[in-house]
């Protein structure tokens, strides 16, 4: 077996080990490089920034165990951003797991809030918790919140929550922030809230889902999007609060380069083998 054949038939565990090292190394020895801001992230940030004080906005918290490290830092910073502008927040989630992680985001954000910013549960924010039923659940929630929720995530009856006293449907919100993670649920928001109620929307999804939603951004049905850890890092940067996401975005450097190198190497080997008549 020639060296080239051996390289083409490399045991995948060697590639796994190399990738592990490439991803772990920058976490142990972080290097921060300059980073440009993607237009989608800038649009999303500016949209959030343009919401007037005193408005009430709806936030779908769709980050789970796997996706929280990517979107969580961005969501936390956005909560700080909105609460600092005296905007009231109503959270809900369409998954059981994501409803629990939304609590984590709220707790972490409250810990980061500058002193003097009002952030009382039930007055400045409320977490309505889990709404089952996927897209049908979103439609039910958007049309009549009290028909699907009798209490918030922490068990407080909806009638005892001051923030919810004048709110019962999607049209009562000034904006929608859909932190969909990898749920693939952003179209639910566009179909069930943006289109019927005319509520402007921006959102966040994992990096892999960004291309799926570019048509909605191009058509104006959605205003920008925060894409994965890079988007979160950009939000942190725009807020002047660099944190966990920035470090993680930098940690993709070596892994990404290794992947690109392996693809190029694989192609070079393939073309050499094809010239020699060996490759299939």
């Amino acid at each position: 077996m020639s060296l080239m054949d051996k390289m083409l038939a490399l045991d995948q565990r060697i590639i796994f080990a190399l990738m592990f090292i490439a991803l772990a190394f920058p976490i142990l020895s972080p290097v921060i490089l300059p980073m440009n801001i993607q237009q989608y992230s800038r649009d999303s940030f500016e949209f959030a920034d343009s919401i007037p004080s005193g408005s009430v906005v709806l936030i779908e918290g769709g980050l789970g165990a796997a996706t929280y490290p990517q979107g969580g830092p961005g969501l936390e910073v956005q909560i700080v951003h909105l609460l600092s502008k005296d905007i009231k927040l109503v959270f809900f989630s369409i998954g059981t797991e994501t409803a629990a992680w939304t609590v984590t985001a709220i707790d972490n954000a409250l810990a980061k809030l500058p002193s003097g910013v009002a952030a009382e549960n039930g007055v400045n924010w409320v977490h309505m918790g889990y709404v089952p039923g996927g897209e049908s659940g979103v439609a039910a929630f958007a049309n009549d919140i009290r028909s699907v929720k009798t209490e918030d995530h922490f068990g407080t009856p909806i009638g005892q929550i001051p923030l919810m006293s004048d709110i019962n449907k999607a049209s009562d919100f000034a904006a929608l922030f859909w932190w969909g993670g990898s749920e693939g649920s952003i179209p639910f928001g566009i179909r069930q809230i943006v289109t019927p109620f005319g509520v402007p929307m921006t959102g966040m999804c994992t990096t892999n889902e960004v291309p799926n939603y570019t048509p909605y951004i191009n058509s104006g049905q959605m205003i920008g999007i925060i894409g994965g850890v890079r988007g979160s890092a950009e939000y942190e940067y725009l807020m002047g609060m660099p944190g966990l996401a920035l470090g993680q975005a930098m940690a993709t450097n070596f892994g990404g380069l290794l992947w690109a190198l392996l693809v190029v190497l694989g192609n070079v080997l393939y073309f050499v083998a094809r010239r020699e008549g060996g490759a299939k």
């Binding site: 990738m19 592990f20 991803l23 976490i27 796997a66 996706t67 929280y68 490290p69 990517q70 990898s182 994992t206 990096t207 892999n208 994965g228 850890v229 890079r230 993680q248 940690a251 993709t252 892994g255 990404g256 992947w259």
Partner: peptide
């Protein structure tokens, strides 16, 4: 690809 790397890094 970038998303999967982010998962490991997380």
């Amino acid at each position: 690809v970038s998303f999967r790397f982010e998962l490991v890094i997380g």
